[in-house]
């Protein structure tokens, strides 16, 4: 029996039942003076619109070199923590400024469980990642879940310190089932970028999805 067949679904699901939220920390993207626009307990909207083009609630503004950079919420939920001490003060890049508590939807729970079931391909370094041109064009043409990769394929372009380095896939062959990163977004080392599903394990993945769909309200 493979590792994925041994996943304890009961334990995973009860964990989600106990705390059906995910906590999204908002960090200052660079240095600057911060001014908050929300308080703890406020309900906030994420990206909306058919094309996810309408910006979410304005959380705060970061002023740097007289450039006011609004930070909008990307996740729907509730403001569970605001670092009020920073209001009106100068913050360093990367400093945690608030947390959004996001109630998990069925789809998101499936995504999180899939992370455990699928074969992850982790970020080799903290950097920005883009799909390799060939992969990107195949995704655009056939859709993400129809693109297969095998060891040795150029999967990503890693952009770090103004250098673009190709990243080659190493692992079991399979289809790109899930994508966990946004192109151009900085990813921590070890964070999963994609979840690869070997063809023979598709049945297991479907089983997980069906189970969550049936059991979760």
């Amino acid at each position: 029996m493979s590792q994925h067949d041994t996943v304890n679904y009961e334990a995973v699901l009860s964990k989600f039942r106990e705390d059906p939220f995910t906590y999204v920390d908002i960090h200052a993207m660079h240095t600057g003076q911060i001014r908050f626009h929300v308080h703890e307990g406020d309900q906030v909207e994420g990206l909306t619109g058919d094309f996810r083009h309408i910006k979410g609630t304005l959380l705060c503004e970061l002023t740097r070199e007289r450039n006011q950079k609004p930070i909008h919420c990307t996740t729907k939920g509730e403001v569970s923590f605001v670092n009020k001490d920073l209001d009106g003060k100068f913050v360093q890049a990367g400093e945690k400024i608030m947390t959004i508590r996001h109630p998990l939807k069925k789809r998101e729970i499936i995504e999180q469980i899939l992370r455990k079931v699928l074969v992850p391909f982790a970020a080799p370094e903290k950097a920005k990642y883009y799909f390799a041109m060939d992969i990107q064009s195949r995704i655009e043409k056939f859709g993400q879940r129809s693109v297969s990769v095998k060891a040795g394929d150029e999967l990503f372009t890693m952009s770090l310190m103004k250098r673009d380095t190709p990243v080659f896939y190493a692992g079991e062959s399979g289809l790109i089932h899930s994508v966990y990163f946004k192109q151009g977004q900085s990813m921590e080392q070890g964070e999963p970028l994609v979840g690869i599903c070997p063809p023979e394990k598709i049945a297991v993945v479907e089983k997980v999805i069906t189970r969550v769909k049936a059991e979760w309200e």
């Binding site: 660079h30 740097r64 070199e65 007289r66 450039n67 151009g184």
Partner: peptide, 16 residues
């Protein structure tokens, strides 16, 4: 004397 953000900064990683 100030900086400005490119509207494509999120997608293309443009610097201020």
């Amino acid at each position: 004397d100030r900086t400005i953000t490119c509207p494509n900064s999120e997608q293309s990683g443009c610097k201020d």
